[in-house]
Nucleic acid binder design. Structure first.
Lengths: 212, 212
DNA sequence: TAGATTGTTAATCGATTAACAATC
DNA sequence: TAGATTGTTAATCGATTAACAATC
């Protein structure tokens, strides 16, 4: 059969990890890998590895396994990481600045084309090869540039209003660092949340309860 | 019955969100809430809300619902966020600096007591009320201070060696921003990963496939 | 050909949802 | 008391694991 259309988020979460381990295998000079070895590295099972890949197609060879290079390519295609989606970032504070640098120098799926803030002290300063613009420019900027994605590094209190504005400008995908659940407001958007405080609280719980 | 001992990570992930929404309810001046309303905010079901809480105890009142204040307290206890686990951070780059500030000024579960780097240009500079120390001090520092948790903001290439050193110093819990799977090496540690690149790739996939 | 490993179907396990008696 | 909502058991759904025929 192969090719499912409803990919579960468990599978989506594993895809970048497969990609990571395949790159490591390649660096180690390994050209072929079987589901068992990949499972060992993923701390998963051979069954799951094969099930995961078979959501998208048949990438292996019976009796031999998977070619590291071609499987890497397949996953690149599946994830779409050869794209360069134009993105803007709002909030040039500590996290915002760090993320702007990450986006500019350590990733290839997105291209950061604008940074915005409402703080007069930050507007005009340079962050990750871009000049921080006033938030009041955002509407004009989005209308004259094709913007696919917004990266939200603003405080919770600013997030709701900002999201409304961005949504009305037609932006439908978000990398959200704000402590706010965007998805509640607009069910048709795509959001990836990085809630640092939530992550810390989970760590806190796991320390207390020693949950492996 | 109540009180389970094996809490699934789905439940653990939801706990900080409950906490967040309960705080919002409190701010709105709402004193009591039922599972249905909480579910609406969580984009969940009333059943799930009640099942989740009943892993830990019986916090509600039939016919009435849950007291916002006392449920908040219960979740604080469950998560253990009144603790102040002493933590050190390694890697005072962009992300490291941002996280150091977050840990110092925006969280209460952990107390950042040391920052380390191997870059001569960074050692001696001030980050989040602390002076960046040389990584060569780390062993002595950990021996003379009780350190519960390490925050890893180092490049992937440095992560494995560093993890070995920290593990041998007795540190068993990690907030891991490095692009590296610590858990593979040491199954008895507690790790919360924040893999920004993985998160970006997931966003990339979701944009392409419009996965809600 | 024989051995290895895939793709895929079937079985199991766990998490989510539904239902309802208990009770405030 | 009647209505509402919990705590909890039972049913359903989906994800993971096991098994095995297909095939390199």
């Amino acid at each position: 059969m192969a090719k499912k259309d409803n990919i579960s988020s468990s599978v989506i979460q594993r895809l970048p990890r497969y990609y990571r381990f395949l790159n490591e295998l390649d660096k180690e000079g390994i050209t072929h890998v079987n589901s068992g070895e990949l499972a060992r590295r993923m701390r998963s099972t051979a069954s799951q590895v094969r099930q995961d890949f078979n959501c998208f197609g048949e990438f292996g060879q019976q009796g031999i396994g998977y070619s590291v290079k071609s499987l890497t390519k397949e996953i690149e295609n599946i994830l779409g990481i050869k794209n360069r989606y134009p993105a803007i970032l709002i909030g040039a504070g500590n996290i915002g600045t760090a993320i702007a640098n990450h986006l500019t120098f350590e990733n290839r799926c997105f291209k950061l084309i604008g940074i915005f803030d409402n703080d007069e002290n930050k507007i005009g300063s340079d962050v990750a090869d871009l000049t921080v613009q006033s938030i009041t420019n955002i509407s004009e900027f989005c209308k004259s540039n094709y913007v696919e994605t917004a990266v939200l590094c603003v405080p919770k209190t600013a997030a709701a209003d900002l999201a409304e504005q961005l949504y009305n400008l037609g932006i439908k995908s978000y990398w959200n660092f704000s402590h706010y659940d965007l998805k509640l407001l607009y069910p048709d958007i795509v959001v990836e949340n990085v809630h640092l405080s939530d992550s810390l609280m989970q760590l806190c719980f796991r320390i207390k309860n020693n949950t492996k």
